[in-house]
Simulated scan of single mutants.
Amino acid sequence: MTVPLIELCAVSRRYDEGPPALNEVTLSIAPGESVAVLGPSGSGKSTLLNLVAGLDRPSAGTVTVDGVRVDQLGESASARYRRARIGLVFQFFNLLDDLTVADNVMLPAQLAGTARGTAQRRATELLGTLGVGRHASAYPGRLSGGERQRVAVARALMNRPALLLADEPTGALDTAAGEDVQRLLTDLHADGQTIVLVTHDLALAESCATRTVHLLDGRVAADSAVARVR
Rank of each mutant, 00 (worst) to 15 (best):
H200A: 08
G171I: 04
E206N: 13
T210Q: 12
I86P: 00
T175E: 15
E33A: 08
G42N: 08
L197V: 09
A166R: 00
F92Y: 14
A177L: 04
T118H: 14
G42E: 05
D180W: 04
C208N: 02
L204V: 10
R85Y: 03
D56G: 06
R121D: 14
G192K: 11
G113H: 12
T47V: 14
L184M: 14
A177V: 05
L55R: 03
L127D: 03
V105C: 08
L216Y: 11
C208G: 01
V105M: 07
P108Q: 15
A79V: 08
V198I: 15
V198L: 10
G32S: 12
G74Q: 06
T64F: 03
L88N: 09
D98A: 12
P108D: 15
P31R: 14
S224E: 13
V181I: 15
A177F: 06
R230W: 10
A154L: 05
C208K: 00
A21P: 08
A36F: 13
A177C: 04
V229I: 12
G146C: 06
I29R: 01
T62S: 09
L188V: 04
D201G: 07
P169N: 03
G146S: 06
D71V: 05
A190S: 11
G146Q: 04
T114V: 15
D167K: 00
G141K: 03
T186M: 08
P31N: 14
A30G: 11
T175I: 09
V105A: 05
Y139H: 12
S144G: 07
T124H: 12
T124R: 10
D16L: 06
C9D: 14
L184D: 07
M106K: 08
S12A: 14
F93P: 01
V63N: 02
T210S: 15
G192R: 13
R82N: 07
S41K: 10
C9M: 13
I195S: 00
H200L: 07
E179Q: 14
G39C: 09
V101K: 08
E125A: 15
A60C: 09
R82Q: 06
G145Y: 09
I6L: 13
L38G: 01
L49E: 00
S43M: 11
L163K: 02
D66M: 01
S144H: 01
L127W: 01
A227C: 06
